[in-house]
Design a protein around this nucleic acid. Structure first.
Lengths: 377, 377
DNA sequence: TCAACTTCGATCACTTTCGATCGCTACTAT
DNA sequence: ATAGTAGCGATCGAAAGTGATCGAAGTTGA
């Protein structure tokens, strides 16, 4: 060894990478001579750098990832000379998740953001498809995803009701692909084991709304949901349970599953609902979902019914509740947390070597956002 | 050391950083000579500066973040030479979890193993305390853990029933420390929001047992649990639900919550239970938990009642079910998965910068293990 | 197919570097 | 004046890095 000390080990390794970047190919013997160390040291350096995904080791030396030699040999990577991955782990192949949601509007963008955020943090890729709340359409998207190369698992919010929905669920159960249901539940197998799922606790959310209204002194609290909403039954269950817990009257209270605001019958349904509130002395109403709640508030004002003075309103979903005048108190499902938890659950299953990993179901809690439609100024 | 005092410690450290900025790489020996201090002083300086994220320590010296060496090796960082993080903490301190379980026997060792395994994978430390199924004892352990230095979060399976249990839960809710309940649930806050928890789906487990027995042709299925078991009510709920789903008779069927096998009244209770089975024509029995199931099988054999020929038995917990003769079919809660999921949930909360992260609850599915006590040879 | 040559990696010995521990000194607060 | 604390340096065992050797494996040419 020469009089002056050579470079530090990491400094030398950086030189190896730099020389390789310049030349595209390097030889062990050449580097040993240039850097004034033994060939075994250079071999060890190259082995380490390769294991870190920084260069590609070949016999006698190394080549640059993305350089002409590596490109010509693309696809012929070995386990101790892998192709570089953008993820944090050079040797870990990138996981690809297929995701099918019933809509790319309204509720779902925040769930999707949660999934993407968690996937980005984990170095995974997400292939997203938006369907249309119809089982047949959903199945078409799912078939294409499953049949396409490279999908490791599925995040899916399938239609589960009706004959078509039940058939879709059975088809999913037989798909033999890791999957997590989002905001849906289903059972499978001879003992009705549940499928893995991540859901909001809508019953608890509705219960929060009822408790909030009871705290404000209300005792006649009604419920409006829209037909065909998968969330509706859970909201109704929670509303009923909480009313029973407080001994509130259910008999004669508005308990309506109505058409949604796009339906031609909506204006009549809206009048009927308000009439029922007036007739029954209802002083507070939980409405799923936001757009219907906003319409209801506007129509009340037109009829001289003050909100919240005469009728306190709590909306559900908190998508656009804030835009109402007055801004609506609302129950907000934890959409981004749902997305993150769904990705996490699927990733845990994909990463778990145990083929008999038990099914996990995750329930995430909504938040009550108190605004002006339930509390007086 | 020269006559005049050297620079102040922080002054010297600033010089280290400045020299590093100029040169890109520095050696410990060189700096020690230049700054007229020992190499150990420079090593300590470099260690401190690295922990502050200002420089990157390598063997023999340091390199500049963003300098040529660091850039060339980017992506190849090791755990003791991490890339600088935007977070407040360049060298993430080890997370320490306190864990209090009601017993270090029977059910809990596998849960503890699950926690330890997940903690080891995450580089976290677990401080374990075994209590005695008494709220006062549990509270004593918890107080000591909370008051001790360095506990970041709690995994706890507290007594939740009785006045003492409810007081313990309220005390936990006010503790202002991240925690996850294991195999327990509790609500808190003005809207009865749930505390974070990881539980086995014992109702589903009981339902699996009933389905299994129905598949074997049984229609008169009884239930035996032991008083004061936190699992018992969930098992009973699932048994009832599944019986109702299949339209099985509940009236007149054994539905007993008995003393456990250590109780002096156990032999009489056992006789009574078997008498009820004979009198009611019960052909199958779900028994929580294993030791009582084994005792029951033995006593049946003594009375000439064949298992499973005359009475099919499914045990619950699968701790020692296999040791029976015949080996018992049993429902096995997912204990290690529970431990892993509990640690994961707490770790996710500790890692999440969002102070309003919603509460997550995880439900994990048991497994039915079919052995000889329910199927004929 | 086989021999010759090149390359690789395991093993061992040696050197360098690191960090825990302990003792000492200087400084500060009481 | 004294106790406590911070900073420093020496010592020593542990860990990391390096080089030599040798058998094994891969490549090439006849």
């Amino acid at each position: 060894m020469s009089d002056s000390p050579g470079p530090l080990p990491d400094e030398r390794r950086a030189q190896v990478v730099e020389l390789l970047r310049r030349r595209g190919v390097v030889r062990v013997g050449d580097l040993a001579t240039e850097l004034d160390v033994s060939v075994i040291t250079i071999r060890r350096d190259i082995a380490l750098l390769s294991s870190q995904g920084l260069i590609r080791r070949v016999r006698g030396g190394a080549v640059l990832h993305g350089g002409p030699v590596a490109d010509a040999l693309a696809g012929g990577e070995t386990e101790d000379s892998p192709a570089p991955q953008p993820g944090p782990d050079a040797e870990k192949p990138q996981v690809t998740i297929g995701m099918v949601v019933p809509s790319l509007n309204y509720y779902w963008p925040d769930v999707i953001r949660g999934v993407r955020e968690a996937a980005a943090a984990a170095g995974a890729r997400v292939v997203l498809r938006g369907a249309t709340y119809r089982a047949a359409d959903e199945r078409r998207h799912l078939s294409r995803l499953i049949e396409s190369a490279g999908i490791d698992g599925l995040l899916v919010a399938p239609t589960t009701t009706g004959d078509d929905g039940q058939a879709l669920v059975r088809w999913l159960q037989e798909a033999d692909m890791p999957m997590v249901l989002i905001e849906r539940t289903a059972a499978s197998g001879p003992y009705h084991e549940a499928m893995e799922s991540v859901v909001s606790d809508h019953a608890l959310g509705a219960g929060m709304a009822v408790r909030h209204l009871v705290e404000l002194g209300h005792r006649r609290i009604g419920l409006i949901t829209t037909v065909q909403s998968p969330t509706g039954p859970h909201v109704r269950h929670g509303w009923r349970q909480a009313c029973e817990e407080f001994g509130l009257p259910l008999e004669g209270m508005p308990d309506v599953s109505t058409v949604d605001q796009w339906h031609p019958e909506w204006p009549k349904a809206l009048e009927s609902v308000i009439d029922q509130c007036v007739a029954s002395g209802t002083t507070a109403l939980l409405v799923h979902s936001d757009p219907e709640a906003i319409n209801l508030v506007e129509r009340c004002q037109e009829r001289g019914i003050r909100v919240p003075g005469d009728l306190a309103i709590v909306a559900y979903d908190d998508e656009v509740a804030e835009l109402c005048d007055p801004p609506l108190t609302a129950v907000r499902p934890p959409k981004m947390a749902i997305g993150r938890a769904a990705f996490g659950l699927l990733a845990a299953r994909l990463a778990d070597p145990d083929p008999e990993r038990p099914t996990h179901r995750v329930v995430v809690e909504p938040t009550l956002i108190v605004r002006s439609s339930s509390v007086s100024a």
